[in-house]
Design a protein around this nucleic acid. Structure first.
Lengths: 332, 332
DNA sequence: ATGAAAGCGCTAACAA
DNA sequence: TTGTTAGCGCTTTCAT
């Protein structure tokens, strides 16, 4: 089944070849402890000659402290989590940490199973999306004693470290912006909210804010499945078929919003005079459309970077609010 | 620095608690070898009671065969490699393999360093993009004895396993399609080709095909840095400023092509009558634009799936051509 | 069906 | 500065 390693060079062989003890080789290789320059030369020469590659599995076991960081993320279908991974991996690589990942498909049960599998690797930290997890996940994570970092959502109690921003605030500010612009008959197009709890939080506080200003949500169209440009397009088409007098639509994210935008372009619906469009995420593509997308830009790469930084420095438990930026754009 | 594990439950403690030997616990947990139903019960009860989480670091070391698969990928900035990872991770998770990754930024030297770091984890396989690697990388990979999978490019000699398609063929077919459509004054807008060798291969065979049909490339605009929608837009703007009589433009990928498409929308350039646009990748978003993007769809998720499948089944060395699909679209 | 014991390749005291 | 020696927590013969 798995690969059986063929005659790999071991540290003992390097020690033998260099004519020194094993621990000396270990010290030289990790540049830790003391050894003479001469010894160093001999060891490095032997390493070179034999083509020795240290075995970090063995090293980790012996030192009972790993440099693995485990990511348990909901999805790789859009750029959001790749952005987080990108930010984190840059920092982790600099610090000789190794990133491990698995994908939950927004399924809390799967999150629990995958987190358990991750823990078996004894990672230095487990990074998860958001702060809603099953009881089992929480219990297991707590018991593991490893660092836990919750990403991209600050609306809840952090287990250990949390890095991100408030999704509720994002929903609120989106609503406030549309109201300030004078829109009163507002609709919503979203993807499956039961699974994506962060989108759900944005939506509910969006609605609350509208209601508090006497302009309650007029209509909504929720599509099953993941967010996508095509679903955004389809959602807006359906929403407009049912509701003719909307003046603005809030989308669960930019992918969905771009779909809506394309629908308007295709149907000749004037934006924003006839219909305003507002998204979430602040994807680069939304800045290059003929009319820049009105949206909220989230610090995804920075979230990954900061999270990784806190882990490698073994920072104390804390919640880091990176905030977000409202992009006025030209579609609202 | 790293986290020191606090009092973790070990297999020995489970054995003690269950009143059996360590090897018995090991057998039960891996469901391998023989043991009585009664013993099984007792072991599982102890596992449950103590909250035992097996240590795969120790397990891997003892069995000298790992279930780690290492991905050394160029970028996480667009959806291409996340798609590959997504396909692979689904298969790997089913088979209880674990994915590890790091990002090279299209730098061959960094690829070598990261591949070396990966090898230290003694993975079952290393997955790389394309088939151009430094001599050092090749030598190291060969010596490692672990499986090597080269992804998304079949134009070269595979080290071990290769899964993907021919980028040269993609460039060729793109050119043939534009010529068949009657375009003769064709330009190119691309990103840094020295780094992205696959885009470079597409471009060169695209040019060769044009030249072979007496319609050599008229102009090109190469932007430094990574591909992006904004760069595509900027690139087309610059190209058109210099060259007024183009009838079609080939882009290094869909991100770039969408930028060009948006530029035309914004400037009122009629597509495809005044200018045709052709991309590469077949991103979902290109299907939802008012005019579907003319492009080549690549099997990114399938590439990941097949690659993972071959690794978990320990398949013999081979090159798997998944092909690609030309999408006529409406922009060319 | 089960247990004892010898490693897997390294790190980390502790001596020297 | 260096070598010796225990483990780290498992898997895997090999007996029983």
């Amino acid at each position: 089944m798995e690969f059986k390693h063929q005659a790999t060079v071991t540290l003992a062989e390097v020690a033998e070849a260099a004519g020194v003890g094993e621990s000396t080789v270990s010290r030289v290789l990790r540049n830790h402890g003391s050894f003479s320059g001469k010894t160093r030369e001999r060891v490095m020469a032997a390493v070179e000659r034999l083509g020795y590659v240290p075995n970090r599995i063995a090293g980790t076991l012996a030192s009972t402290g790993s440099r693995l960081v485990a990511f348990v993320i909901p999805s790789l279908s859009n750029i959001v989590f790749p952005d987080v991974l990108r930010g984190a991996s840059a920092v982790l690589e600099e610090n000789r940490y190794q990133a491990v990942f698995s994908v939950t498909d927004y399924d809390p049960g799967k999150e629990e199973a995958l987190a358990a599998a991750m823990l078996a690797w004894r990672p230095a930290a487990v990074m998860l999306a958001g702060c809603e997890h099953t009881e089992g996940t929480v219990k297991m994570l707590r018991a593991s004693g490893c660092r836990v970092v919750e990403l991209l959502d600050l609306d809840g109690d952090a287990l250990d470290i949390a890095v991100g921003f408030s999704n509720r605030a994002a929903g609120r500010e989106s609503a406030a912006f549309l109201l300030k612009r004078g829109y009163r008959r507002i609709g919503y197009v979203g993807h499956d909210l039961n699974r994506d709890t962060r989108a759900g939080k944005r939506f509910s506080s969006f609605c609350e804010t509208l209601a508090a200003h006497d302009a309650p949500l007029v209509a909504r169209e929720i599509l099953p499945g993941a967010s996508s440009v095509e679903n955004g397009r389809l959602g807006l088409e359906r929403l407009l078929a049912r509701t003719t007098d909307l003046d603005a639509v809030y989308f669960s994210n930019d992918d969905m919003a771009l779909g809506g935008y394309f629908h308007c372009l295709a149907k000749g619906i004037a934006i924003p005079s006839k219909l305003a469009i507002f998204g979430y995420n602040g994807l680069d593509i939304g800045r290059a459309t003929p009319q820049p997308l009105s949206t909220i830009r989230t610090p995804r790469v920075a979230t990954g970077e900061i999270a990784a930084q806190l882990v490698v420095t073994n920072a104390p438990p804390q919640a880091v609010d990176l905030g977000f930026e409202l992009i006025e754009g030209a579609t609202a």
